[in-house]
Design a binder for these strands. Structure first.
Lengths: 199, 199, 199, 199
DNA sequence: TATGAATGAGAGTTCATTCAT
DNA sequence: AATGAATGAACTCTCATTCAT
């Protein structure tokens, strides 16, 4: 008898969780949180319903897990932008910020839906917003170290809306039209950055 | 002998519908479409469940009715702005456009939720978006008659995102902070209008 | 001021009851007892729902009233046949009995449905059956006065099934085919009568 | 090592379906289709409501399933009679046909009710009638090969009514009285067969 | 450990009946 | 007396979750 390695099992578990997550995101985006059934998620991900419940003991926990992963990913990306911000022109920074939104559109739809559905949960819209805000503030602090509290705050809030606009363009517009529109959107972001940095 | 008026009945009916609509908007905003039960709406509006179903024969019809009212109100307000646009400075026009979003925040949340939930209905997000687009295009045509097809189109799309930003500020930010932020947001709108009008 | 005659009112009431009865029979036949709503009956008969309830205080009472009328009509017709039976050949008697079933097919369907639905009511299928049995026994006693208790009983029961067959032919078969079939059915009835009378 | 048999589960399922069917037939017979609730059927068969819906996803599907089983059983029995018909005297054939109706009386009542309630379904009264007609025609063709189209048709229709009479006797009459009455009914059937075969 | 049949609370909806007008 | 809006009990059906196998 050889030692039964745990690695393969863990590996299998991770794949399973990944498959479940993908199926869940697609379905939540399509039908909303309440409109999606655990049975569907199980079927679409090729998982037995009992196994699904082994990984995610409630439907809410599944939603929260997806939201957490999303929030952490977003924070990470923004941290990277903040790190590089000092050396960039405002034009480049604007472009990079807009590029941050280039995650699959389906994710956006699903996450918005989930954040609304989990209003009382640990990743409510409010909390996601705060986390996004923190990431952007960090970028602004890196780009314009002179910004003080109140001005930093409002600059961040405006930037957040601009980011949401970019994101909405990706979600709402058709492939090509979206690209063109984003090119029109970058100047708005850059102008905002300029106003903020030079005032 | 007084006129045997039907008004009271009709009046009562209209009040009932109003009460139901208000309760429904509040609950849909709080809990989403699927998360809200017809029984709750009835209770909150002081209506018997049977009466609720007399006015709105399905939950979907209630959602659609609210969406319709919302879409029509929005179209009307934009039509008024378009009418006055020719005589306004771009600063004023920007301000007026931003002011258009000054409808109760709860409405916004509810309507977004409903439009998503009624994806296949007569007031899906796509259709609402189109209607909003049409209203904005009308304003732009009034303000900048020289704009041709393709440029008008992308100008409208960018403007729509700016409008959504203003709306989001109202929805998301606290009372006072929101006002300040909108003051910062107006210049973005004005800059966009300028770029569009003078190009 | 002249005396307000009650006759017109009564007349009106009778017409109303007639209209309601016709509508009810048609609907009960189409959709069954539970499948028919009081509101539909009111609408189809041009009666306000409140007025319908003035004449028939419950849905059950309406059904019972229709069943009673039907049972009484059937008894009356059979009594007439019994009266004339002594002077008829068995061929003629058979023909007359079969002719008794010539009431509108829709009635039959409705009455069968109602009798089933009112299992506990005063005109249950069992009771209707008994009343029909009594009518037929009367006819047989008139046609074959020699028949004693037990033989009369079984002769009546067989005759009842033959009558039901004739009725079913009218209900189920198309206009013309039905007529032909009834011509084939009469000999069966006559043979039964002969067996019964000459044994 | 024993076979990891799936039989127990399937066995359990089959028993469940059988229990549900029996409960449903009894209740449909007692209270009609609309008068019977799924909850009652579940309770009477010792099934959880959710399990009932696993086997029969709608009330209609339950009715249809019962009707199908009934129709198929009837067709099968008639086919067996047809097979043996050529070697039988008409007396024996009549007796066998009457014996075909010897299925539980409760079934008859339930099936009649269900066929009416499912007017638009795949086993409407019309279709059941047709299937019964086909079975009887097959018997007649076997017994009297000389019968041509039109005569076969009307002979079958008359036979059908005679069969219904036998069935009604079983349903309506008490145990012993029924047996006696059926003995009186057989000659009617035999006479019909004779007329048909020798004309 | 993995499976999926079984569970039952709770949702949307209907309709017989009442009663204010 | 006549009307029809209002009522709410009761029905069909769904689905998150459990647990025997």
């Amino acid at each position: 008898m050889s030692l039964p390695s745990l690695a393969p099992k863990r590996q299998r578990g991770r794949l399973r969780v990944q498959a479940i997550s993908e199926a869940a995101i697609a379905l939540f985006a399509e039908r909303g949180f309440d409109g999606t059934t655990m049975t569907e998620i199980a079927a679409r991900s090729g998982t037995a319903i009992g196994s699904l419940y082994r990984f995610f003991p409630t439907k809410e926990s599944l939603a929260d897990s997806l939201l957490q992963r999303y929030a952490e990913g977003m924070a990470e990306v923004l941290a990277q932008v903040a790190e590089k911000a000092p050396g960039l022109t405002l034009d480049d920074l604007a472009w990079r910020l807009v590029a941050v939104t280039a995650r699959s559109g389906i994710d956006q739809a699903a996450m918005a839906t989930l954040a609304d559905a989990r209003r009382e949960g640990p990743y409510s819209r409010t909390i996601l917003r705060q986390s996004f805000y923190d990431g952007l503030a960090r970028v602004l602090r890196a780009a314009a170290p002179a910004l003080d509290g109140a001005r930093l705050d409002s600059a961040t809030r405006v930037l957040r809306q601009l980011m949401k606009g970019a994101l909405a363009i990706r979600t709402e517009e058709a492939e090509e039209a979206g690209r063109d529109l984003l090119r029109d959107w970058c100047p708005l972001v850059r102008d905002h950055l300029m106003r903020v940095c030079h005032d």
